[in-house]
Write a protein that binds this DNA or RNA. Structure first.
Lengths: 306, 306
DNA sequence: CGACGTCCATGCCATCAGGTTATGGATGCG
DNA sequence: CGCATCCATAACCTGATGGCATGGACGTCG
């Protein structure tokens, strides 16, 4: 009796959604494939996990029991793998710093340099993460510590400190009617099509669409950038599929002749923060790095630690 | 990053053996297959887990970290699946009783009947287990409670009670020179070839070869029965591949014209016991069944509970 | 009341992961 | 110096798995 974790993850998704078709979409597989996976899991266990009906998939008693335990198992599973990665990097004296494009800014070089002084012999490995992973590799254990944008989904299971706050601006094609304006009110953008993050980023996507600051006004999605890479995103904007909110520093880091950045009033600012797993609280190397981050960004730092 | 548990089990085996070839044999796969599995695990993690050398496979620091955590993860994994099975059977009011061929004897019918009286509405499902699984399905969660032979490997992680004790006899082909004897001393069998259980049953195999009662005299293996089914085993004996120790009751339950059973002195007796998972201590239905077992086998029961 | 939408199941096909056997290279041993 | 041991590689083959297209059941709506 050996069950692939993939089956358990599929099971968990179906159990949560209560619906094969939706779960299939979320897992990026076809619905028949999921049907087969669930049937396979059931036959391997010799147990009916769902009762099928027109209304969807409902858990049986056994399915409920399994669904209650699976998440913890999967977490334990992932943690073991992450731990191995992290031990490997520590043994090699490598600090893996994940960062979101746009979160590593002017201060980054000084941070790296300061860390190099404090920990000679250690090497810093900067790893760019796509926006599809707002934890910049912490969630998957590919990074020991991360520079990223707050707030983000999953923030509660990590520890974070705010490094700096910057206003959100808007990125527009140079040909856009509003491109010439010195300043724009967010209300004027309500009916504009936006270039959005993929749906599976949850409310991270919503936050960058500022759905909470539209007073109920619906969002128009002009395009979705699946890759989570800045180039894709900028190209979509330049091609006129839509506009997007972006941190002010993007104007410096992602300047292109076909894109204009303009200040916007009426949207909350974005914050750059440093984040680390709870287990790294006692890791002196990572704590040193965090210290370097705090020392090399403009004070005051509100002591916000989640 | 999604890793098959099979890879982790393979990893655990290699880590434990320190040797690909041996681990491959233990896992019943070819050595190249294991090579690939380990390499795949390493590449999925992006981490070297072993240092290869002429002497075998040695864990790296990261490998050690993983090896320390993997067993607990796999146990949690299996427990979740077992729990689902057990909930399913409880919901259907089915008590799954695993038994080892030869462990369900004269008393079994009375036990079932008594349980039927005590729990009307419940159905007992008897499941025969091969000797390759001395826990009779408890380990895999395929049984809620088991009738089996003591001692057996893995006994410490279960709870057991002895039901009865019976001497071990020897099963011989009728044509065997010793077949006519009324009584045989074990010492006379030291040089006889034996039909043995598969190697992966560990010391369970040794116990039925009585290696501890040979005063260092080596065992001769005439054949191995892989299937763990009585028929295979008896046929091997009848064909003259070897002889074997068997509980006295086998003479009644597995009488064949080509096999003779004879008493043997100088070997410890075998015990029939009832076993259940630790988690079943609080399950009233299973406790009822255990009660029925004790009430329907000859007292006194030494209160041996492991 | 029939057309349609929503679910899950099934059949067929293409693909690829994973296994096996055979073999090679490195190294220690009698 | 042949031999045994141990891991890696190569070539091949089978079966699992996913995708597409489609079917059947059932509720809903015009």
């Amino acid at each position: 009796m050996d069950v692939d974790t993939r089956l358990l993850r599929s099971f968990a998704a179906v159990a949560e959604e209560g619906n094969l078709t939706h779960a299939a979409r979320r897992l990026f597989v076809s619905q028949p494939a999921l049907t087969k996976q669930i049937r396979q899991l059931e036959s391997q266990l010799g147990v009916r996990l769902f009762t099928r009906s027109r209304a969807g998939m409902t858990l049986t008693a056994a399915g409920r029991a399994l669904a209650d335990r699976v998440p913890a198992v999967l977490v334990g599973f992932d943690q073991a793998l992450q731990e191995a990665k992290s031990v490997a990097s520590r043994a090699a004296r490598v600090l893996r710093v994940g960062f979101l494009a746009g979160a590593a800014n002017e201060a980054t070089q000084q941070i790296i340099a300061a860390f190099g002084d404090r920990r000679p012999g250690w090497r810093v490995e900067m790893r760019a993460a796509p926006w599809t992973d707002p934890t910049a590799g912490l969630a998957s254990g590919d990074a020991d510590v991360a520079l990223l944008r707050l707030p983000f989904p999953g923030q509660d299971s990590l520890h974070t400190k705010v490094l700096l706050t910057e206003p959100r601006w808007v990125a527009l094609p140079v040909t856009h009617p509003l491109a010439g304006r010195d300043h724009i009110s967010f209300r004027e953008l309500w009916d504009q099509p936006f270039v959005a993050a993929p749906a599976d980023t949850g409310w991270w996507r919503d936050w960058w669409l500022a759905t909470g600051e539209r007073e109920g006004h619906p969002v128009t999605i002009g395009a979705v950038t699946d890759s989570g890479q800045p180039d894709d995103w900028l190209t979509a904007i330049a091609n006129g599929y839509g506009i997007a909110l972006a941190p002010e520093s993007a104007a410096r880091y992602y300047a292109r002749p076909d894109i204009t950045y303009r200040p916007v009033s009426g949207v909350s600012p974005s914050q750059v923060g440093v984040a680390w797993p709870v287990t790294a609280d006692t890791n002196p190397v990572i704590q040193d790095f965090i210290r370097c981050c705090l020392d090399n960004t403009p004070p005051p730092h509100p002591d916000r630690m989640t």
